[in-house]
Structure formats: C-alpha cells, structure tokens
C-alpha cells in the first residue's frame, strides 16, 4: 500500500511519520511511506489541519496524532 504523511514540517508531523514507520515495521505491512511537505501538494487532499495520514490516496486521519493501535487498525483495512 501507498502511505503518505502530509505536513509542512511541524513537530506533530514528524511524530506521526515516526509512529507510522514503527507500526508498519512491527506488523510487517507491505507499504511505501512518503512524506509530503509541499503545501500545494498537501492542499490537493483538501485538508485544513495537519498532520494527516493518507493511504492509497484516501485521507484517513487529519489534524491529530492517532495512537499506534489506531494506525494499525487503519492500515489493516488495506
């Protein structure tokens, strides 16, 4: 699956990226993780609060840092 972390470099965005990488690694998900930092690219997803977690081009979580469990749940759907 294709995971994108949207966020223009604030502390929360880095936390979300780190957390997502950990979850992917620990559960052996087959995923590529990209960080999207350019604001114009971020706006293509029509979100207004960062950070956001996008899986296969669908915005799953926005504006907050989810728990590791929640990320795992979201990723398990794919």
């Amino acid at each position: 699956m294709d995971i994108k972390i949207l966020g223009s470099g604030c502390a929360k965005c880095k936390t979300l990226e780190k957390l997502t990488r950990e979850v992917v690694e620990q559960n052996g998900f087959n995923a590529t993780i990209t960080k999207v930092e350019d604001i114009v690219d971020i706006m293509k997803y029509n979100i207004m609060s960062t950070p956001a977690l996008v899986v296969n081009e669908k915005v799953e979580i926005k504006g907050r840092i989810p728990s590791a469990d929640e990320i795992k749940q979201v990723l398990s759907k794919y």
Partner: peptide, 17 residues
C-alpha cells in the same frame, strides 16, 4: 475550532479558496 499556528497555512488556503 482547534487551531495551532503550524496549521495556519492549510487553514488559510482552505478558507480563502
């Protein structure tokens, strides 16, 4: 509304556009 200055830009764009 939840607001943090790090989200000021996407918020501004989202509103204005």
């Amino acid at each position: 509304t939840p607001f943090c200055s790090c989200s000021a830009i996407p918020l501004f764009l989202g509103f204005v556009e």
